[in-house]
Amino acid sequence: MGSAWDVIPQNIGLLMDGLWLTLQLSACALVVSIPIGILLGLLRISRNRILSFLAVSYVEFVRGVPLLVLLFWIYFVLGKWLKLGPFLSGVMGLGLFSAAFIAEIVRAGIQAVPRGQMEAARSSGMSYVQAMRFIVLPQAMRKVLPPMASQFITLIKDSSLVSVISVVDLTLVAKNLVSTSFRSLEVWSFVAIMYFCITFFLSQVIRAFERRYRVSE
């Protein structure tokens, strides 16, 4: 007679595949959302009213729609049309969703950098773009590390929702495993711990970054 927990080692390959997919999906969504989020954040504070209106509209709209609905829409509407498939639909859905939140974080970070920094940079002959890139954004990014970290952690947790559009991530592997083995307690406990391990590891990494940057504050 084996233990009820044997279901985990017996299926560890499957679970690891699911975990690996969750990590890939989250990483890809992150790579999509950071540049889009920064760009939206910059447009949001732009003096060009049309650009800032577009950015505000995007942020407000995406934040006002549940991620689940956004994922369905991208998978069943946009995805069918562009032939994206589940994985890319998931990446796009998560990435575009997360970008709206990152945009707000970046905007707040930029506005927290004193005006004198931009003035000093501009008065030395730097263009607006140079001043943003070398002076304002590096300072803004340091200020936004903590909220950014919790956004990344949210992103990893939200990635479990892609299981509904048939991406075989950790959550969907678990769900399938439960329906064949009937070991709910064991499988879901294990999966919960897996998610926790990833997010805890990530928050430690970011804390280390914060410590490193504190010297120059």
């Binding site: 920094q117 000093a120 501009r122 008065s123 030395s124 002959g125 590096p138 340091r142 120059s216």
Partner: peptide
Amino acid sequence: INQLRSDIGFVFQSFNLYPHL
């Protein structure tokens, strides 16, 4: 204006040094 400003040094009351550099 960027070229012209590079010929004009400006010193501020509150220094405005770049804290990350």
